[in-house]
Structure formats: C-alpha cells, structure tokens
Simulated assay, not measured.
Amino acid sequence: MPNVEISPGLAGLNALEPEAAERELLACCASRAFARAVAALRPFPDLEGLGAAADSAVRELAWPDVLEALDAHPRIGERAAGAGRTASWSRQEQVGVQDRARQALTEGNQAYEARFGHVYLVCATGLSGEDLLARLRERLVNDDDTERRVVRDELAKITRLRLAKLVSAR
C-alpha cells in the first residue's frame, strides 16, 4: 500500500478507546487476538504502518485464532448474508463470481473443506469465478503446512484491503 498521510479516518481509529478499536478491527479480521494485538499498537502514523502491523499480527496468530477469523468468511461463490459492513465487503470482494462458476465452486468448496477442515479462503478481489476455481484446485494438492501459510497470506491480503476501507469509511 502506498504511504498515506494521516487521514481523519485513521486519526479516528487511533483515538478510539481500546474496546471500540477492537470492535472496528474485527470487521477487517474476525480474530479477537488479531483485534487486540493491532489495537494495542496504536497510534499508527499512516495506512502503511497499520497494514504492516496487521500483516504481522495475522502471521503471529495461533491456528485456532486463524480458524476464528475464517469462520466469519462465507464460502467462495456464496453471497454473504446480512446487512453488516463485513457482509457488504464480502459481497464486493466476490463480485467476479458469475452464476456459471458457482456450481463448480460449491463442489470445490466441499472437496477443500473435506481435505483441510475449514473454508477455502482466497482474496477474491479482482478475480473471476474461473480464477477462484483454478486457485482452489491448485491448493487442493498442498500439504497442511503449505496450505496454512497460503491461508495466512490470503487472510493478510483481505485484512489489508478491509483496513483501507475501514479508515476511508471513518
């Protein structure tokens, strides 16, 4: 992310009480350990500093905390339900999934979940349904350790995108 001057949104996030900051950060990554860790590092001078702290926090999460974050993500190809900010962001991120790819993604999601025991997570922004399906198929051959690294990378990408939305919306 480019280095961005302090914006009213970032200044607002920096000024929140810890519990309120954690609630806001949970919209970006639904792990309570993540939200606590990032909120505790405030104030951030710019969006790049916030993003770097978030990347580090995602990579340091214990696997149960990663699974907690994954629980907030709908399956790729399924529209997130609800009117909340996180559901809205998820729908925006999956806008490239067309109906013809949904059935194949449904089947791929089932195979992935049977293989790894959790939802297939990928940063869907800018990807078509065919792209998402191809990545899913490539990842099905990963061993558990490799896939956990990939999941953390994807979670970090999604979190960075959502942090930018969070501070621009504040």
Score class of each variant (00 low, 15 high):
46 D>Q: 04
163 L>E: 06
155 L>H: 08
61 L>A: 09
99 D>T: 15
65 D>M: 05
66 V>D: 03
4 V>H: 13
80 A>S: 14
38 V>G: 00
6 I>E: 10
96 G>W: 09
139 R>W: 06
142 N>V: 04
15 A>C: 03
1 M>R: 04
30 A>T: 11
105 L>M: 11
28 C>L: 01
72 A>K: 06
6 I>K: 06
40 A>Y: 05
123 C>K: 10
138 E>A: 07
133 L>F: 13
143 D>E: 03
137 R>Y: 13
6 I>S: 09
74 P>S: 15
4 V>Q: 13
89 W>H: 07
134 A>E: 14
151 V>E: 02
51 G>F: 10
167 V>C: 02
132 L>I: 09
37 A>M: 01
32 R>V: 14
80 A>I: 09
53 A>Y: 00
124 A>G: 15
34 F>Q: 11
34 F>G: 11
152 R>V: 06
128 S>K: 03
151 V>N: 03
129 G>C: 02
111 A>P: 11
26 L>Q: 15
85 R>W: 15
166 L>P: 01
38 V>H: 02
73 H>P: 11
67 L>S: 04
117 G>N: 08
50 L>D: 01
53 A>W: 00
133 L>H: 13
3 N>F: 13
76 I>R: 14
126 G>E: 05
65 D>N: 06
160 R>S: 02
113 E>F: 05
150 V>D: 07
64 P>T: 07
83 A>P: 09
124 A>L: 13
57 A>T: 01
8 P>F: 05
153 D>P: 04
20 A>K: 10
86 T>P: 05
134 A>K: 12
99 D>I: 12
76 I>Y: 12
43 P>V: 02
23 R>S: 13
86 T>I: 07
54 A>M: 02
62 A>R: 09
149 R>H: 14
103 Q>P: 10
68 E>D: 13
1 M>C: 07
36 R>T: 09
35 A>C: 00
23 R>L: 09
143 D>C: 01
110 Q>N: 11
21 A>R: 03
163 L>W: 10
48 E>C: 00
40 A>M: 06
73 H>V: 11
99 D>A: 15
109 N>W: 14
162 R>P: 04
65 D>G: 05
142 N>I: 00
